[in-house]
Amino acid sequence: MLDDLKYRDGEVSVAGVRVRYRVAGPDNDRTPLVLVHGTAGSVDGHFGYIFPMMAYRQKVIALDWSDTEGATLELADLVAQVRAVIGDAVPVGPVTLLGYSLGACVAAQTAAELPGKVANLILVAGWLKTDTHQQMRNRIWRALRDQDSASITEYMTFCAFSPGFMNMKSLPEMVAAAGMLKMSGFVDRQMDLNTRIDIAEACETITAKTLVIGCTFDMMVPKHHSKQLFGAIEDARYTEIPSGHAVVHERAAELFHHIDMFTRAPGAHPAGTIIPAQKP
């Protein structure tokens, strides 16, 4: 009796690697929505909630990043994967591009490169330029990784969730959640890329109608980064969710609300608007 969402899997080759993506939802008056996950993520890991729920509203496409063959992972590699999926899944007409965390940096860069194609842009907990605070956290992560420390996933979990959310769970529950994170060489390469992000110039050229979503209690990409994106992108509006960085888990329904409202009418709020939170 489960309502199994009908979806199709696609695959596209770019720079010698295969990139898999998933498509679901009806064609209607909304622009197809393309979802780009963040560090150590996947469609299921970061969009397990947003993908099926948005697919009841409109066409949704989400891709899983693939590791590349270069010595280091570069932003351009991930942008190329997103561009390839957009080209394959939506050959004609505009898209709304959503990126989360590192995926937001990828999405912003993509929007700068494809000004006609990316009509609307949603940046969730992204950033403009890696700062000292992020480098410090990344350095601790690197040290734990080099030591092959068992604490690394607990450290990542500690950084990802807000105190408020964590306090609704028990310590064993949080430890169990940490145990589900898997390390890999690809994650290492993403973490290295995270120390070198600078899309400030590209953001100045973005023409897409943009919604920037910052997370009030984000300790990994604090909300001042989202404010910087809000300033840097010409046609941007801003809203905030009282969540940690892991907003896709913590406040998935509130995130859905903002995405749903924006994809329904991207221009409902003029550029420069700080959209207030809905007060229940």
Binding site: D3, Y49, P242, R251, K279, P280
Partner: peptide, 26 residues
């Protein structure tokens, strides 16, 4: 109070995915 109200509300909203019949949340 406002923060708690908002937290309860959105936690409740999350559960609509069960009613929507999405297997993972069900």
């Amino acid at each position: 109070v406002e923060a708690m109200r908002s937290e309860i509300f959105w936690a409740g909203e999350y559960n609509f995915a069960q009613r929507r019949n999405v297997p993972r949340f069900l």
